[in-house]
Simulated assay, not measured.
Amino acid sequence: MWLLLVLFLPIVQGSYPLMAVSNAVSGPVRGSVTVQCRYEPGWETYKKWWCRGAKWENCRILVKTNGSGEKAKGNQVSIQDNQKMHMFTVTMEELRWNDADTYWCGIEKSGTDLGVKVKVTIDPVTMQCHYGPEWETYVRSWCQDADLSSCTIVVQTTGSELKKNHVSINQKMHTFSMTIWGE
């Protein structure tokens, strides 16, 4: 009986050797997000990576360490392994709306790599405009270019509220605001 308990105990107490500190992170457009992934001792010199894609088997590696503590950089993403703390940190910078997706923290090893899923979302952005009472009956609109002669109108309204795709306009007290959100 004792032998059976001793053999069974490591299986019950065992845990996955890799985990994300948070399985969901968000950041603002043009801002950044940081993801920390912890691993158990023994994995220090293995290569760590960050990949993008909802399915593990199809995810595309964006950045990978060389097995040391040196920082590795990719296109707007970096990864650094703190081997003493058993943790690597991924930073995504200059976030865009289309950066919202499923990503993976991973450790390269023989056979199947270790990986943990992390959901990255982009925070909604709200912008406000103030206008005088004499403009109350005019159409309010937002366009996506600073040059009025060539701008494309994203959304416009003459009512009190309009929602279109991922944009909404609310008008109250001579102020209207537009909120843009991703997925």
Rank of each mutant, 00 (worst) to 15 (best):
V35N: 05
D123G: 01
R38K: 15
D147Y: 08
T158V: 04
A54E: 15
C143F: 05
K73L: 03
E161M: 11
N23V: 08
V77H: 12
N165S: 07
N75G: 00
R60Y: 07
V35I: 15
Y16Q: 02
D147P: 04
K48M: 11
S22R: 10
S26R: 13
Q156P: 04
S160N: 02
Q13D: 04
W97C: 04
G27F: 11
K64N: 11
I11V: 14
V118K: 08
Y16F: 15
Q171Y: 02
G42C: 09
M92T: 01
D81Q: 03
G67L: 10
W104A: 02
E70Q: 12
S110M: 13
L7M: 08
T158A: 09
S168D: 01
Q36P: 00
A100L: 06
K163W: 08
W49V: 02
H174W: 00
W56I: 01
L3M: 06
T152R: 02
D101S: 12
A72N: 08
L4G: 14
K164P: 00
T34K: 12
D145Q: 10
L95S: 05
P133R: 10
V29W: 04
H86W: 15
K55P: 02
F8P: 00
P17H: 02
R38S: 15
Q144S: 14
Q80V: 12
M127I: 12
T91S: 13
A100E: 13
L95D: 01
T152G: 02
T34D: 12
I61P: 05
I180S: 07
T158K: 12
M178T: 11
I11W: 09
K163E: 12
S141H: 10
K73M: 12
K47C: 07
P133Y: 07
K172N: 05
R140Y: 04
Q128L: 12
C129Q: 13
T45D: 09
T121G: 10
V33F: 01
Q13V: 09
R140P: 15
A20S: 15
S78T: 14
T157I: 06
V90H: 01
R60G: 01
V125S: 10
N58Y: 09
T158I: 11
K163N: 00
T121Y: 06
T121I: 01
M178V: 14
H174A: 03
W56L: 04
Q76F: 14
G42K: 10
W104S: 08
C143W: 04
M85G: 00
L3V: 03
L148F: 10
T152W: 03
K47G: 10
A20L: 08
M92P: 00
K109Q: 14
V90E: 02
K109I: 13
E94S: 06
F176N: 00
K119W: 03
C151K: 10
T34W: 07
V167D: 07
S68H: 00
C129S: 11
G132W: 06
G67N: 09
W135E: 15
G111T: 13
T126H: 01
